[in-house]
Simulated scan of single mutants.
Amino acid sequence: MTSPSPALPWHRPLMLLAVAMAILTVASAAAMVIDDRTLTGLPIWAKSVKFALSVLIYAVTWSWLIAQLTRLRRLAWWAGTVAAGGLALELVVIVTQIVRGTTSHFNFTTPLNAALWETMGSSIVGVWLATLVVSVALFANPTADRARDTAIRYGTVLSLAGAALGILMVRETPAQRATGGSISGAHTVGPADGGPGLPILGWSTVGGDLRIPHFIGMHALQAMPLVLIVLELGARRIPVLRSMETRRTLVVIASATYGALLAVLTWQALRGQSVVHPDVATLLAFGVIGIAATVSGVLTVRPKQVDSQHVSAGAAR
């Protein structure tokens, strides 16, 4: 008898979490239409839509990766289970606070709100540590394809770094220290949370926003393998990409570029600068990264093209 879903056996707790997050995404999107309440300048249910989608992607990705392991698989399975439980708890808190009509993050306005936020904070730390354990297990399971290993390993490292950037949000802002309020921490640097922002995402258009590097960093886990998939598909038509070492080098370049962009976005946010209003220094940094990535990529590919041309010429003789 076959399983009703080939994906469920990958890592059942994570895949069940993914199913729950898919349901929550649909339900929250419907609630956005029915419930006209807003919170911090956005529809109140927008937060659960964003978090549910992000957790859905996380759960499916890590479930699939754990299923590929041959060594330390049991350790990784338990770490994945801890992560699934922590993420489920986090979403329970978020939805609970949405129903109650208040914020889930940085909220110390009442003992209950403080307890829920501290519970969620503890679960986030647990998820990060569990992800670190699974990442170590991935490093202990090399495969014959070094390009794929590199994409997955660099993706996990960048993802862990992006997740760790969340700690920058829990610090009291200067304004909060001055007033001694019951909100401790903020997504936005400069203006208070809840100001003008991008539609749905809510990322500030008038100040720095630490959610941007946090989000982009976490999803490096999907971005780097996607880069490799594009290279592997390109290899069907572009001979130079048929070399595993060439693909690996290009993945390294893409990962270094991604990491540099992550650093600049963090720097930009910490300076209180909106992502949609970069100054000259930020544009210059992005330009340098773009030039370095382009030159590195060309130098990686061009010698291979020259070599292949020489081989073809020799064969013709």
Rank of each mutant, 00 (worst) to 15 (best):
A31N: 04
M32H: 08
V33P: 10
D35W: 04
D35K: 00
R37I: 01
T38H: 07
T38E: 12
L39R: 11
A46W: 00
K47P: 09
V49Q: 09
L53Y: 12
L56T: 05
I57L: 13
V60R: 02
W62G: 01
S63Y: 07
T70F: 07
T70Y: 03
T70L: 09
L72P: 00
R73V: 02
R74D: 14
R74V: 14
L75N: 07
A76N: 06
A76F: 03
A76L: 08
A79T: 05
A79C: 05
G80N: 05
G80V: 07
T81I: 12
A83Y: 02
A84E: 10
G85P: 08
E90N: 08
V93H: 02
I94W: 01
V95H: 03
H105I: 04
F106A: 10
N107C: 13
T109Q: 14
T110S: 13
P111H: 11
L112Y: 10
N113F: 07
A114W: 10
L116K: 02
S123T: 15
S123L: 09
I124Q: 13
G126D: 03
W128K: 09
L132Q: 00
V133K: 03
V134C: 08
V134R: 04
V136E: 00
V136Y: 03
A137P: 01
L138S: 03
N141A: 05
P142N: 07
P142D: 03
R146N: 12
R146S: 12
A147N: 10
A147T: 01
T150Y: 08
I152S: 06
Y154I: 11
Y154L: 15
V157W: 01
L158R: 06
G162N: 00
